[in-house]
Design a protein around this nucleic acid. Structure first.
Lengths: 215, 215
DNA sequence: TCCAACGTAGCACGGGTGTGCTATAAAGCA
DNA sequence: TGCTTTATAGCACACCCGTGCTACGTTGGA
């Protein structure tokens, strides 16, 4: 046989090709032919690793959701072992820093946000993708819930907050900022993102934030 | 000739058919054939009113943007002639009420939000639609700017606010809530929308809001 | 009454797409 | 060496798409 290839690695490479096509032309143009060309493969080769276009699409979104989920888990893990003796201002800064990971503040995260928006909006009318869109939504909601609860437990937040309502609001704010930055980058760029997040966290916090904006 | 038809009215009817297809199947399935079938017309008839598929698409988005813009203008007009003797609480309530017009709180506005999301996300990779997406964005931003400035001028807002930064944040919050309500209606429904808006306006206001939630 | 204008309808063509199926070269294994 | 497995590649078909073009009623005006 030809030089043995790790099938999982190949599948992931093809998925990355889908991401590039989706960013450049939109997910609706991610045909087998277009993706194969983007990956530098023949259409028959791609089909050797996927049952068909639907299978390819589902794998790509699941792969994307898994990567995003892993990053969220890692971020939450960072606040799970806090220094309980540190002053509240440091906890506020940590909360702001972890939430800034979600925003498209650099090119890498902006590319990811473009793919995220393509998949998550497309899933509305694609039953086979909806499941993964819901997973991504719930995972981010859980992350924000967890971070807010942790910060509140450390006394970093204003007393008397309705944490559930604040999660819904912060969740919408973060995704709204991300959407605006993806769709209208001339209007909402990294400075606006960082400023909006800092301002919002400051309103939730018991102490004002410190340090530079997390660009 | 057959019973004379108002061409403008026909074009608008076809545009409404596009909206229905976009909501049900996604904008990428709004082909000439699908739209004609949805409108109850033959494909040749649709082509009698449009130069082609691109022309149809552009008209539909412009028609949508014009309707949305007209509604925004009307809403702003309501706050343009305020009762300067009224207490600040009434101005806060008016601000909340006008902004609630943007949110998908009932079926009609939810349908509009679905179409809006389809067009505005699709425009990212469609140069001929980008212009109208930017217009819609700027119009909403202008509305929020205007409403915040008016409310502030009437003493309804907390003193010392950075109105520009607050506009960016409120804009992202509103569009983020709308997107969540469209994509995950089981997670974010009308009660969550109304509550989040009320809570946010309350934080901006000099006085607490009154009255029932604007469902 | 006749004709020109208009609304409606549809054929036919080239192009893109997913998929069933086949072919071939390369490399591991006996 | 010879056989099998694997990766790659591509043909062929049916389907959907936009569009150029033609055809045919229907209705208003001369």
């Amino acid at each position: 046989m030809p030089k043995l290839v790790d099938p999982g690695e190949r599948r992931r490479e093809v998925a990355e090709a889908i991401f590039r096509v989706a960013r450049r032309d939109g997910l609706e143009h991610a045909s087998l032919r277009a993706v194969a060309a983007e990956a530098g493969l023949a259409i028959g080769s791609v089909r050797h690793y996927f049952d068909g276009q639907a299978d390819l699409m589902i794998f790509a979104m699941r792969y994307f959701a898994e990567r995003a989920g892993a990053r969220i888990l890692a971020a939450v893990g960072q606040l799970r072992t806090p220094d309980t003796d540190a002053p509240p201002a440091e906890h506020v800064a940590a909360l702001e820093r972890l939430l800034a990971e979600i925003l498209p503040l650099d090119d890498r995260r902006r590319e990811e946000a473009e793919v995220w928006l393509a998949f998550t909006t497309s899933a509305r009318t694609r039953p086979d993708l909806r499941r993964h869109a819901l997973e991504m939504f719930d995972e981010l909601a859980w992350m924000i819930d967890t971070l807010l609860a942790a910060a509140d437990g450390l006394g970093a937040l204003r007393p008397g907050l309705d944490l559930h309502a604040e999660r819904i609001r912060l969740n919408a704010l973060l995704d709204g900022l991300t959407m605006h930055s993806v769709l209208q980058p001339d209007r909402v760029g990294p400075p606006e993102l960082a400023e909006a997040l800092r301002h919002h966290i400051a309103e939730l916090s018991a102490v004002p934030p410190e340090g530079p904006l997390p660009l």
